Computed example of a mutant assay.
Amino acid sequence: MDTPLWWHDDAAGGVRVAFTSVRAGNLGTHVGDPARALENRRSLEEHLGLEVGSVHYLQQIHSSRVLDASSAQLPGPEQPAPEADAWISPRGVQPLAVMGADCPPILLAGATSSGVVTGAAHTGRPGLLGGVLENTVSAMRSRARELSEPGAITAWIGPGACGQCYEIPEEMVDQIAAERPAIRSRTRWGTAALDLKAEAAQVLSEAGIEVVDTAGCTMEDESLFSHRRSSQQGAAPGRIAGIIWTP
């Protein structure tokens, strides 16, 4: 079946999670043709059965900043998005999206006695090392406690550059891995690398989060957008998205 989704699943509490493929087109208005990206977003919403303009995106800045979508000033589809790299929906009402193209988008959902709390985080290297996941989990649990009794949280790690592809200088790996050993990796050709997905899984597991890794590598799977691959091959840039919502 021709679908814009690379992976999707139904979770407890009526939550739905999905990661797009290149069939959805580029969803990032900051790369390529912004007007076409907006049209791709509208087409995706129609495919998901969501109201056009209801899925909100962030202006991702490789930070550890987390917004609360229930209180943030959410713009219209053609207005500037708020600057942050993660956000939460305390009752799961707002459909949340984060983009990626080597940096894994991560979706989260937690049960509460009165429903669900959802979250979405962009885990680029600076944000991941700066605590964007820890901040997202903390925000979800804090808001859940305000509303009801919080329960277990599940996180879905979306496609990103795998640890056997994400090459960076040895000195940088040594410096980062001194405090975060799970992030150290080697490429298939033997050079130093980072495994952002392994580090994300480690952070989430230590926080008591159930982790589902969708396992996709953006640099190897041509059905996904990759910033590094497009730069190396001179291909058109693009962004996939992770989306979490309740129908």
Rank of each mutant, 00 (worst) to 15 (best):
Gly242Asp: 06
Cys103Gln: 13
Ile176Thr: 12
Leu50Asp: 02
Arg186Phe: 11
Phe225Cys: 15
Glu222Phe: 13
Asp33Phe: 05
Trp189Gln: 11
Leu129Met: 13
Ala215Arg: 06
Arg228Ser: 15
Arg186Ile: 09
Leu224Asp: 05
Asp213Val: 06
Phe225Pro: 14
Pro34Asn: 05
Ser70Phe: 09
Gln79Ile: 00
Thr118Gln: 01
Val117Leu: 03
Glu199Phe: 04
Gly238Thr: 12
Gly25Glu: 06
Thr112Asp: 03
Asp221Cys: 11
Glu210Ser: 06
Asp221Ala: 14
Gly76Cys: 00
His30Ser: 11
Leu67Glu: 00
Trp7Tyr: 14
His227Met: 14
Thr187Asp: 02
Ala207Cys: 08
Gln60Asn: 08
Ala193Pro: 09
Glu206Lys: 05
Leu108Ala: 05
Glu170Ala: 11
Ala86Arg: 02
Arg145Glu: 10
Pro105Gly: 07
Leu27Gly: 14
Asp10Trp: 10
Leu5Ser: 12
Arg186Glu: 05
Gly208His: 02
Leu38Asn: 02
Leu196Val: 11
Arg239Asp: 11
Ser230Leu: 08
Asp68Thr: 11
Ala182Gly: 05
Gly76Met: 04
His8Thr: 11
Pro82Gln: 06
Arg228Gly: 12
Gln94Ser: 09
Ile106Val: 15
Glu51Thr: 13
Leu27Phe: 09
Gly130Gln: 09
Asn40His: 09
Val211Arg: 05
Ala155Trp: 06
Trp87Tyr: 03
Ala152Lys: 08
Ala144Phe: 10
Arg145Cys: 07
Glu199Met: 10
Val212Tyr: 04
Gly32Phe: 06
Gly238Leu: 04
Gly28His: 07
Ser230Cys: 15
Pro150Ser: 02
Lys197Leu: 01
Trp87Ala: 02
Gly14Ser: 11
Gly190His: 09
Gln79Glu: 13
Ala200Gly: 12
Gln233Thr: 15
Glu222Asp: 14
Ala241Thr: 14
Ala97Glu: 01
Arg180Asn: 13
Glu134Gly: 15
Met140Asp: 02
Pro169Val: 01
Ile88Asn: 04
Ser63Phe: 01
Thr118Pro: 12
Thr118Ser: 06
Leu108Gly: 06
Leu224Ser: 12
